[in-house]
């Protein structure tokens, strides 16, 4: 049990945000915590499952994977996106 800060890059949002989670949280909980700061504020809510992946990774983390076990560094940037949505694949640069 420890606070763990992450950088949230939420699909279709415009800004990276600080999200404090717990090392015991699983990835669904990370996604939900990130959504609080984007969905309904600047990003329209959609149905479906939110997934979390490391920036640049093609595959998301398993939904039940704990933060403590994900090998993430504090403040590492994770991407949160709706499973199956189009255009969730990212260009590596802007």
């Amino acid at each position: 049990m420890a606070l763990f800060p992450l950088t949230s890059n939420f699909q279709e949002d415009f800004v990276l945000q600080l999200v404090a989670v717990d090392t015991e949280n699983n990835m669904d909980e990370v996604a939900a915590a990130a959504a609080v700061h984007s969905v309904g504020r600047r990003v329209k809510a959609r149905p479906g499952v939110l997934r979390v992946r490391r920036q640049g990774a093609s595959e998301p983390f398993a939904r039940d994977l704990k933060v403590a076990d994900a090998g993430l560094r504090p403040m590492e940037c994770v991407e949160i996106y709706w499973e199956g949505s189009t255009a969730n694949l990212r260009e590596p640069r802007h």
């Binding site: 950088t7 415009f14 800004v15 990276l16 802007h94």
Partner: peptide
Amino acid sequence: NYTPGPKWTMRD
């Protein structure tokens, strides 16, 4: 920050 929307260009 960077351009939002369907293209989702923002990154760290």
